[in-house]
């Protein structure tokens, strides 16, 4: 009952809490803040700017005016309240959006900048991949190619169906998330996902100690928690800030397009160019992976037509055993 009520108020409440929170954390030492806003040189979130010399802080208020406030007068929002707000906005999603990704396989050269920036953003161990660049070979007589594989955020997701506690769920904007404060670690969703998109925190997560003080953001799934599941989130935290996902902006080769199907527009993460989704798919014979499974993915592929020939891949497809337990 009380759950329902808080949901109704959550949007408005969040706006209030959200703006103040940026300040609260900044004043408290910018730990959490830098954790997700300045990952790869994209600077501050734009909502708040910490001005150290004057000990005054600029705050974006509820009605949209930029104001200043003395740092000493700040009172941080209570942790619980803020996590609740984060949770409910995380579960709702961004209204009116239907996020989708297009991956142009003809451009992928296995640089793996996407994997690195993703693991970095989500505090993942070496062997944990939200996005994994696979070396594929469809048939013995066809050339291999590289295929980045995130979570497909299916419209008929097999994983959320089986979750016994509603810890993994699909939001209105199409994103499938995991609430690692609720997950009981049964791993049914891992078994159910035909694309092996999910990873588990078998060990104490990589940054467990460092992240201890961080508030849990369900849209970033940080801090990771031992005994729970994690997976690609389409960088829901970045989308909320109006930015492209970590992997999309990290790729140097223009492999990724990301955007909103309702607007029929996707933006290339490297060139910044925005194109019509439908046209891109039509002109390049875009497809989804294993459509026969009926999962209705929201990740589309453009065929791997410019395959390297002869296929050059000196690397390994396994990690060394040493530090992965």
């Amino acid at each position: 009952m009380s759950d329902k009520k808080s949901k109704n108020n959550s949007r408005r409440e969040f706006l209030k809490i959200g703006s103040l929170f940026g300040v609260g954390v900044a004043a408290a030492g910018a730990a959490a803040y830098s954790g997700f806003a300045s990952q790869d040189g994209h600077g501050t979130s734009g909502e708040t700017i910490l001005s150290e010399s004057e000990q005054k802080i600029k705050v974006l208020t509820e009605d949209g005016t930029l104001a200043e406030i003395k740092a000493s007068e700040l009172t941080p929002i209570k942790k619980d309240e803020y996590t609740d707000a984060l949770q409910s906005q995380g579960r709702e999603g961004i209204a009116g959006k239907h996020w989708a990704m297009v991956i142009d396989l003809s451009r992928c050269r296995n640089v793996r900048a996407c994997m690195a920036s993703c693991q970095n953003a989500h505090h993942l161990r070496d062997e944990q991949h939200h996005i994994n660049v696979l070396r594929m070979q469809d048939d013995r007589n066809t050339e291999p190619y590289f295929m980045p594989k995130p979570c497909f955020h299916c419209d008929n997701p097999p994983c959320t169906k089986v979750c016994p506690v509603d810890a993994t769920f699909k939001r209105q904007d199409g994103i499938v998330l995991i609430d690692n404060e609720r997950c009981i670690g049964c791993r049914f969703c891992i078994a159910a996902c035909p694309y092996s998109a999910r990873v588990f925190n078998w060990f104490e997560p990589k940054d467990a100690e460092k992240d201890e003080e961080l508030l849990y953001n369900v849209e970033l799934n940080v801090p990771q928690k031992k005994g729970t599941v994690s997976k690609c989130l389409f960088s829901a935290d970045r989308l909320r800030e109006g930015k492209l996902p970590y992997c999309v902006s990290a790729c140097p080769n223009g492999v990724y397009y990301f955007g909103d199907l309702n607007e029929d527009a996707v933006t290339n993460g490297t060139s910044g160019e925005t194109v019509r989704f439908s046209e891109l798919i039509r002109q390049n014979a875009g497809y989804t992976l294993m459509p026969e499974l009926g999962t209705k993915p929201n990740v589309y592929y453009l065929p791997p037509k410019n395959r390297m020939f002869p296929f050059e891949f000196k690397g390994k497809t396994t990690l060394d055993d040493e530090h992965h337990g």
Binding site: P164, D166, I184, F188
Partner: peptide, 20 residues
């Protein structure tokens, strides 16, 4: 279970759609 401490979630947040 990865989180046996959350066993009660099965009753608090149980989803009737799940075979578990």
């Amino acid at each position: 279970m990865g989180r046996p401490d959350r066993f009660l979630n099965l009753f608090l947040h149980g989803r009737l759609q799940s075979p578990i």
